Amino acid sequence: MSKNSVYRLSAAALIACAVLSVLGGAAHPIHEGQAHTAHTLTQPIFPYAHFAIYLGAILLMVGLPAAAVHLAPRIGRIGLAGLALYFVTNAVAVQGGLTVEGFVVPALAADPSARHLIDETGAITAATWFNNIQMVAGLLFMLSMILLGIGLFRSGVVPRWTGAVLIAGAVFLLVVLPAIPMLPLVTGLLIELPRGLAVAMIGVVMIRSLRPAGTAPAWRLQEGASA
């Protein structure tokens, strides 16, 4: 398989990841300000919403290695550190959490004798070690978004709003989300949309990089025209 084919497939995986993640986040059930109670976990829409997010997370892992090759020379050490940390924390925090949330906890929620194992405060389960690992990995995940966002903002390889949106998404997850009640549709979009937009834009840039040499990106042409 040629390098161009790998780039195209990886870029398509990133764009599909964004679409599935946003759709799944928007459809994720929320009841009385909580997203992981026995009530929400047993809603008919939950398996479909969760599977969309889970499949999006898998596609992200498929697309990120080629994205790293494309971005590494342009995003500096800060951005590269963020990209590496983003990959690792997705593998640990996101994939690990999604596996438990999607394929273990709903079975507990459906069994009245096992519902005491669900943490009704939103931590998915009452397993202390699992929650602690998820908490640390989650904090590192948000740090990775900030570092990668800085690298993208400074790189010029993508529109600057891409990095700004990624940083804003991390700030929302770290500061705003814990302080506000969760709302159906709105909260899922606010969680998934910033990362989705950034990831999709990276995929678009990778595809555009395959154009003939000397062809400037569309946003660069617009900037030159307005200068």
Rank of each mutant, 00 (worst) to 15 (best):
L117T: 09
L117Q: 13
D119P: 03
D119C: 01
D119A: 11
E120S: 08
E120A: 11
E120R: 09
E120Y: 06
T121A: 09
T121E: 08
G122W: 04
G122N: 05
A123V: 04
A123E: 11
I124E: 02
T125D: 04
T125H: 05
A126K: 05
A127F: 11
A127V: 12
A127G: 00
T128A: 13
T128C: 04
W129A: 15
W129D: 12
F130L: 03
F130M: 05
F130S: 04
F130N: 05
N131F: 02
N132G: 01
N132Q: 15
I133S: 05
I133Q: 03
Q134N: 15
M135E: 12
V136Q: 07
V136L: 15
V136S: 01
V136G: 06
A137C: 07
G138E: 05
G138M: 06
L139Y: 12
L139P: 02
L140S: 08
M142H: 13
M142T: 11
M142F: 15
M142V: 10
M142P: 01
L143H: 02
S144F: 13
M145E: 08
M145R: 11
M145A: 05
M145P: 05
I146V: 15
I146N: 01
I146P: 00
L147T: 03
L148D: 02
I150R: 08
I150K: 08
G151T: 11
L152S: 03
L152P: 03
F153V: 01
F153A: 14
R154L: 14
R154G: 00
R154W: 11
R154Q: 15
S155A: 13
G156Y: 05
G156M: 09
G156A: 02
V157G: 00
V158S: 13
V158K: 07
P159W: 12
R160E: 09
R160D: 07
R160L: 05
R160V: 10
R160Q: 14
W161D: 08
W161H: 11
T162Q: 06
T162E: 00
T162L: 03
G163H: 11
A164L: 14
V165L: 15
I167H: 07
I167M: 10
I167V: 14
I167T: 05
A168N: 08
A168M: 10
G169S: 06
G169N: 08
G169F: 04
A170N: 06
V171R: 02
F172N: 06
L173D: 02
V176N: 03
L177A: 13
L177P: 00
L177M: 12
L177D: 10
L177Y: 07
P178C: 12
P178Q: 10
